[in-house]
Computed example of a mutant assay.
Amino acid sequence: MNMLCLLLFLISFMTGLIPPETIVAIPVINGGIVATQMMTQTAMDHGLALAAALGTITFAVQKFVGTPIASFFGLKEVRLLLEEYRRTGINPSHKEEAITGERQTFVNRNKKYFAAFMCLAMTGFFGWIAFCIGKVTGVSYTIWCLLLGAYLR
């Protein structure tokens, strides 16, 4: 599903359905104030004042409108989970881990191979892939790193 959404976004972006100025808003939504400052400064350096304003407005709307809503529903979910935990004694968000004992992740499956050098090699490999995709598409490789990291996490 995530791959399909990413593919639809890329097709929409490359065919011109989504204006290129909107690419400023993607890291802003995920990264907070540091991403907002970086993206707006880069947009201003390239003469895209409208894109810089879009990034700042996106951050402001997310913080002032989205944060109270997310907090409300987050607290509501926590109360439901805590009530179920107190009633049953089992963590409801980790039912499969309670049955199997441990969640099987890439690190757990390949524990003897997963070391610091392997992490660096994977980071370098996907950084190189993002750089190559960035050259082909014209979108900054840092944006591709962000998208690949979000997908592969």
Rank of each mutant, 00 (worst) to 15 (best):
L81E: 01
G32N: 00
C119T: 10
L120K: 02
A43E: 09
L120M: 08
I26H: 06
E102N: 09
L75E: 12
I90L: 13
N110C: 10
L54M: 03
Q62T: 12
S93W: 00
G127I: 01
T100Y: 15
A60P: 06
I26F: 12
A130D: 04
G101D: 07
L54A: 02
N110R: 11
L81G: 02
A115V: 08
P68H: 06
G31Q: 06
V24M: 00
V34I: 01
I18V: 06
T22V: 11
M118W: 12
A52S: 08
E102A: 13
E21L: 15
A60T: 15
L54N: 01
Q37K: 12
F117N: 07
V34F: 07
G55A: 00
I57D: 05
F126E: 03
R79K: 07
L82S: 08
T22E: 04
M39P: 12
A121V: 09
I23G: 03
M44I: 15
A121I: 09
I129S: 04
A98E: 10
G66P: 02
F73D: 06
E102P: 05
K112D: 15
A115G: 12
F106R: 01
A49L: 14
R103K: 06
R87N: 10
A130M: 02
T67W: 09
L80D: 09
F131H: 00
E77Q: 14
P68V: 06
D45C: 01
F117I: 07
L17K: 03
Q41D: 08
S71C: 11
N30G: 14
F114V: 11
